[in-house]
Design a protein around this nucleic acid. Structure first.
Lengths: 336, 336
DNA sequence: CTGAAAGCGCTTACAG
DNA sequence: CTGAAAGCGCTTACAG
């Protein structure tokens, strides 16, 4: 009974110490000071387990991502953790490795740990898994799961803006033959990106050439293979957009291997703006995914909800094009 | 009192339910079955806070790294987390951003959370910060902190082996003019790597040319600047080793910018074997840091210690050279 | 403004 | 082999 020791030293009851600890109003100034001194002198730290047991709150948030090894996530994790830590919240985190079944057990583990809230920042989500959290009364928030947008709180990212900017950039350089490296259409995020691409194309009256859309696995290897396929075509696109940077890197490798110079003979644009995009040779132009902002919104939603505050829904986040050196006018053409 | 409900349903006392839950021996087969059924039927999950409060163990491990955004760490985190999760341990993690002061507060937070053990996997460690854990009786383990090797459990990595292999590879290609991009000598890990390099040089009777050792900040930018300095020298080295892959990437960028072809005109070798090493153009040869193995040993040390088992100290881990495409015989020379 | 006391949900000697 | 009961360290109505 450690709080008892503090109470004795300050010559008050444990109730009063507890009040001071939790910043409750209505403690006389003098008592307050005495208790505070005792706390400091004894170097007292409350036992979080006892606290949680009694108060029913653990000050623990869960964070679930798809894949720690995908450079997309560290920044998101970093931001989330920093925000949490500023509020005295600890974060336990796991990843699903893109496997919806693992999401189920991740959520179960977190619920069993009685976290106060869960951020499900995965690219793929199965609705049933989420019900565990709902049933346990644990608030959750998702990242850009449009299909579940009505049912669950959701941090939306409007891919369309980014793709429109990318397309307009390519058009302004003189490209009209534009290919796309899509992701597996089983992934929500991959599907959304492909839709955004074709929509942007149509907006500008461009025809969607099905054979110029190749699919990869969202990793470097998949991007390389997809690009090899596109390069084998006649005619082939003069510019290629990839649904993520890892595949754009693979595309770049394929171009290098085929002795096709980027951007002189082929323009490439990625999506995400991973740190590696800028490290490539040439540095990749890409659409920046506002993941730190996603993390911030996700945390704030959960934090406010836990506090019992109402959260008004915000407008979707907008990704924007970052122009580096992997785009240029098509071979033999001038900037118009 | 949820365990009470289970007890009632199984017509036993809570003590018996607890015994079943914790796999204690000496419960009659029949009772065991009845209790198990009740647990399943009621979908009962023990309250971890009550458990921890009583048992004094939280089944929570702390993991501290230098920087989530450095691609070195995700694999380490991933491995550690997988191992922990297999034992029903949850991991809370934070990073110091290379700031020793932050390490202090990271450890404090974890101790206050009453984690059962802490893995301090940072490249820089201040001894005093560790005392908090020691005083609180929380086992810790460090990553390759040679200065503290006698005082604290430590997962050692023998840089020398890797550098020896790299050097011998370069010598076999015909290089004798070998430069080095060092890290800030305030970082233990950077210092260790530089020492390993110069030792390898001397072993082979090569002279250490001080002007061919440039220092960077362990990031891409630092590597680029350091390489620019080396390239401005006459004579300049025909091969350069970098203390980590991020700086090797920067070195590659500097070479590209100076229109020096790698590996034809300049060989580059990195250290760590980050995922990006293989994505570069050309793919970087590098010394692989066995970080998954580090994570495994760190976890196992902590796990065994928490169980009260004795852990015998293992021999240091050996990094090995991975040959890709950034090394070749020096310009105009043949492989000897 | 402050205190006495119940109770959060478990585990663990102790007794039988 | 099993149960009654104390207690882990807090917080929170309730009373004064």
């Amino acid at each position: 009974m450690d709080i008892l020791q503090v109470a004795k030293r300050a010559k008050v009851s444990t109730a009063t110490v507890s009040r001071v600890l939790n910043g409750f109003p209505g403690v006389r100034e003098k008592t307050l000071a005495r208790v505070r001194r005792a706390i400091v002198e004894m170097n007292y730290v409350p036992n979080p387990n006892a606290r949680s047991l009694r108060a029913g709150r653990t000050r623990l948030f869960g964070l679930i991502v798809s894949d720690v090894n995908n450079p997309f996530f560290p920044e998101l994790i970093d931001s989330f953790e920093a925000l949490a830590s500023a509020q005295g919240i600890e974060v336990i985190f796991t990843h699903t490795n893109y496997d919806p079944k693992r999401l189920h057990s991740c959520i179960r583990r977190m619920v069993e740990r009685s976290v106060d809230a869960i951020a499900v920042m995965t690219s793929e989500v199965e609705e049933e898994s989420l019900h565990q959290a709902v049933q346990a009364g644990v608030p959750i928030v998702l990242m850009n799961q449009r299909k579940l947008a009505g049912k669950f709180p959701n941090i939306l990212v409007e891919y369309a803006t980014g793709f429109r900017e990318a397309l307009e950039h390519l058009l302004s350089l003189g490209h009209t033959d534009i290919g796309f490296i899509a992701g597996p259409q089983t992934l929500n995020s991959a599907q959304g990106r492909k839709d955004a691409f074709t929509a942007a194309l149509r907006e500008h009256g461009l025809h969607v050439r099905k054979e110029w859309i190749a699919a990869g696995d969202m990793r470097v290897d998949g991007g390389r293979t997809a690009m090899q396929r596109l390069l084998s075509l006649t005619p082939r696109p003069t510019a290629v957009l990839a649904s993520n940077d890892l595949m754009a890197v693979g595309a770049l490798q394929a171009a290098h291997a085929a002795h096709i110079r980027v951007p002189r003979e082929l323009s490439i644009i990625g999506f995400d703006d991973l740190p590696i995009a800028g490290m490539m040779h040439p540095p990749l132009s890409t659409i920046r995914h506002p993941r730190r902002e996603v993390a911030r919104r996700a945390f704030e939603y959960l934090w406010k909800t836990v506090q019992g505050e109402e959260v008004e829904s915000a407008s979707p986040l907008q990704p924007h094009l970052i122009i580096r050196s992997s785009t240029a006018p098509p071979h033999g053409q001038k900037r118009r």
